[in-house]
Design a protein around this nucleic acid. Structure first.
Length: 400
RNA sequence: GGAGGGGUGGCCGAGCGGUCAAUGGCAGCAGACUGUAAAUCUGCCGGGUUCGCCCUACGUUGGUUCAAAUCCAACCCCCUCCA
């Protein structure tokens, strides 16, 4: 369908929409006034990763089209653990850990959203504020009565565990109730009428809109994004090195930039629409001209959003210098005292997991010092040397 | 509850007393070709190594044997069929 509101038409044109509970009504609400919407994030790690980026961008578009984003931190729910589509229990984290993760994650959002007190300023709230204060009996009477266990058992997320005869603790079983309750709380406290999330959250989101209707007789909406995969079918954001983290402490800017630079041809236009602010017309122009150059633009723009323009330009400059044969400022470095063997340098820079692997790299002709291929594993490298493993991984030895 | 089948390296999946660090496929890494892409071809692909070997690994724990991923016992977990 075509949307009247700039919010939904933007999301639609850029490929964010998978399902909406009542598209026409939500569109009307968004065209009519300020819509307050939220996305929930858990605090199991100190950083979010690429998989969360779609919903973060959605909140950004929400704000830029005049609406109000709420970032809900699952400080309370993290103490329970989402059993959805997981085969194993998640480890439970202690309060201290959760607090530290929350603080760290907030810094990411500050890059994408404007926080404050204005009508369309973003706010961040923690569901621990209400979840940990709940009283059991009142909760059961007021909220519990709206949930049918029969129906909860029919959700795929629960059925999966039941069918496998895997234990699903009562604690975890309550997760979906808490998420629905979060939505109700946000609706009451902030007039939040839209919950967004990945397509795997559809069931949980619908639970929330149902609860709001039953408990307070009000309408609320849900919107999910498609699962973003790469053109070759692989799940996005997994590299050999692990998850692609948004936080600079977990993944250096240069590596973040490189992740985007190495996007498959077929994904460039789609990723530009999803993960940059570039206007659609410009994306069209860029990707139909020189696809390889377009990737560099994608990398720089995506990095600028997440890490700042300066970090993006630095990464781009380092990449340009490095791939031209020089060395940029932003390369990974390894501090050494005096010369070390090529093997130690490779392991120290994280290019090889063990000396054996480093040996194989040298034997296979993949190791270079200052651009010179090294065939001898006993070769020494001095501080200041540029070490390369293959064509893409580069680092420098620094004195220290 | 009864009867079968199975748990092997990141994943899938062979092996079923020594020649097994374990065929093959996928993923990954490197080389060639390119565009820091894809496809294709080639090599590598548990750890250490003085390159002789050594260590750790085939669900868990014991046992048989000169020798076990392979045989036996117990236990744990998964799957299928019957009730």
């Amino acid at each position: 369908m075509t949307y009247a509101s700039s919010f939904l038409s933007t999301l639609d044109a850029r490929g964010f929409i998978h399902q909406i509970t009542d598209p026409a009504a939500l569109d009307a609400a968004a065209a009519d006034g300020v819509v307050t919407a939220y996305v929930g994030y858990d605090c199991t790690a100190p950083s979010l990763h690429i998989g969360n980026l779609v919903s973060i961008m959605m909140l950004r578009h929400l704000q830029q089209t005049g609406h109000k984003p709420i970032v809900l931190m699952g400080g309370g729910t993290t103490k329970v653990g989402d059993p959805s589509f997981r085969s194993d229990d998640r480890p439970l984290l202690d309060d201290e850990r959760i607090e530290a993760n929350k603080a760290s994650i907030r810094r990411i959002f500050e890059r994408f959203l404007t926080f404050g007190d204005g009508p369309s300023d973003a706010i961040m709230v923690d569901n621990d504020a209400w979840l940990s204060k709940l009283e059991y009996i009142p909760f059961l009477r007021n909220i519990g009565r709206h949930f049918s266990v029969n129906r909860m058992l029919s959700f795929d997320s629960v059925k999966l565990r039941m069918d496998r005869d895997q234990s699903l603790s009562f604690l975890e079983f309550n997760y979906m109730i808490m998420q629905a309750y979060d939505y109700l709380e946000l609706n009451r406290r902030f007039g939040c009428v839209l919950q967004m999330g990945g397509s795997d959250q559809w069931g949980n989101i619908v639970n929330g809109t149902d609860l709001i209707r039953r408990a307070d007789a009000r309408d609320a909406f849900g919107l999910t994004t498609p699962l973003i995969t790469r053109a070759d079918g692989a799940k996005m954001g997994k590299t050999a090195a692990g998850a692609v983290w948004l936080h600079e402490d977990s993944l250096p800017g240069f590596d973040y930039w490189q992740f985007w630079r190495n996007t498959h041809d077929a994904d460039v236009a789609r990723f530009m629409r999803l993960f940059t602010d570039l206007p659609l017309g410009e994306i069209e122009t860029l990707t139909s001209a020189d696809i390889n150059h377009a990737k560099a633009v994608l990398a720089t723009e995506a990095t600028a959003l997440c890490r700042g323009r300066e970090a993006a330009d630095a990464a781009a400059a380092t990449a340009a210098a490095t791939f031209a044969g020089g060395a940029g400022d932003d390369l990974p470095s390894f501090a050494v005292v005096g010369p070390v063997t090529i093997l130690d340098a490779l392991v120290g820079l994280g290019f090889a997991a063990s000396k054996g692997e480093a040996r194989r790299l040298v034997a296979g002709g993949g190791a270079r010092i200052d651009g010179e291929a090294i065939a001898d594993e006993a070769a020494m490298a001095r501080p200041g040397a540029r070490i390369s493993a293959g064509k893409k991984r580069h680092g420098v030895l620094v004195s220290g």
